[in-house]
Amino acid sequence: MNRTDRLTAMIIYLQGRSRVTVKDLSERYGISSRTVYRDLRALQEAGVPIGSEEGKGYFIVKGYHLPPVMFDKDEVAALLAGERLMEKWSETKLSQSYSAALDKIRSVLHSREKEYLDTLDQHIKTFSYADERQVETDYRIFVFLQDAVVNKEVVAIEYYSPYKDQYTQRDVEPLGLLIRGNYWYLAGWCRLRTDYRMFRVDRIENYKKTGKKLADAPEHTLQEFSEQSLREEQDLEEVVVQFDEEMIRYLGDQKHYRGWVSEEKVDGGVQMTFLTSSIEYFARWLLMWGNGVTVHQPKELKERVCELSKELYQHHR
């Protein structure tokens, strides 16, 4: 991106947000903080009314607007691809909202871009894997949680844990909504467990406001949640297994959901390295591959697979 395009993009980025930090701009455009300051100064000298608030960032003074923004065909194609990706989240109403927004964008496109988009629309499709679970989530929960995050309101939820087959009542400080695999999660500070937790949204049975508000500078933050999650990931245990050649075609993308890190071809198959937080779950997953997989390490995993195999043998015998 040349400097002229970057300056224009910066104005659009600033105009779409209440406050933007130098760090935000630096990371978004891949430039140094020094270059960000230089670009902001150039925009101010060109007459763009950019203000700043100490500790919060920069903003465009209310009332200033760019001329109507137009999209090129690459941006239009990206928006259409985004609409297809959003279709799987129809239960949260995100899909409907995205489609409505795209319809408004279509209405202001030039005829050439409209024709391009109409043609492309007929040639972009999404397909789900045959074994992909379609999770239904009451869209009202999603909207409720969105509002709670924005308004910094503590929520009371009834949460179902399938592993313990029980419901628990939790007061949660909502920090954000996250996508992991095929599911939406609420990231928050659980006051019952006094720790950061992730709650799968489709497992929230009941929910309500508590009437309690978080401070403007809350004690618990999404940034701290992310840092803790990163630390936990660094504590994952390394697993090395070898899949026989005939098993590889059946494995497909499953490895990416089990903490796959790397792989290399070896005599008779492929040796793969994973990082896992649960030897137990990993051992149970390996059972489905029968004698088509061999455990190299750790010893604990090999022993657990042997124990589970014996249990299965005794059970089916």
Rank of each mutant, 00 (worst) to 15 (best):
A156P: 00
E132C: 06
V172G: 02
Q223F: 06
D171Q: 07
A217W: 05
V155M: 01
S226G: 03
D235R: 10
K213T: 13
F225Q: 00
L177I: 15
L214G: 04
Q223I: 05
S99A: 15
I141T: 05
G211I: 10
Y139R: 15
R180T: 05
W184F: 13
A100C: 08
D121T: 02
T210K: 05
D118R: 13
L120A: 11
Q166N: 11
S226I: 03
Q146C: 15
I157E: 05
E91H: 15
R112N: 14
S111G: 06
Q234I: 00
D131S: 07
V149H: 06
T126I: 15
S90C: 06
E91Y: 13
I105P: 04
L117H: 09
N151I: 01
K93Y: 03
L145A: 10
Y159R: 10
E91C: 14
A148G: 03
T119Y: 13
E153H: 02
E205P: 00
Q122Y: 04
T92H: 05
E232G: 00
E205Q: 10
Q134M: 12
Q169A: 08
A217N: 13
R231E: 07
V155G: 01
Y116N: 07
I124W: 06
Y167K: 07
K213I: 15
K125N: 11
A100H: 11
K125H: 13
Y129P: 05
Q228G: 00
S90L: 03
V143W: 07
V135M: 07
G176Q: 10
T137V: 14
T119M: 10
P174V: 08
S97F: 00
T126E: 12
S99C: 12
A215I: 02
R193C: 04
K93V: 02
L177G: 08
C190V: 01
E237I: 12
N151R: 15
V154T: 08
R180W: 05
E173C: 04
F199H: 04
K114P: 14
K164A: 11
K209L: 14
Y163I: 09
D202M: 09
N182D: 11
L175F: 09
D195N: 14
R112I: 14
L222F: 15
T126R: 13
K104G: 08
L175A: 04
D118T: 05
A100N: 07
A101S: 11
E233D: 06
A101H: 02
S90H: 10
E115P: 00
E232L: 10
W184Q: 12
K93Q: 13
K213P: 00
E132K: 08
E153Y: 01
Q96D: 12
V155A: 03
E227P: 01
W89I: 06
S161D: 12
D165L: 06
K152W: 00
Q146M: 14
M198S: 14
Q134H: 15
E227G: 00
I204Q: 01
K213M: 12
Y196G: 08
C190T: 02
E227M: 05
D216M: 00
S226L: 04
S161P: 09
Y196A: 02
S97D: 07
K212W: 06
Y163D: 11
M198E: 13
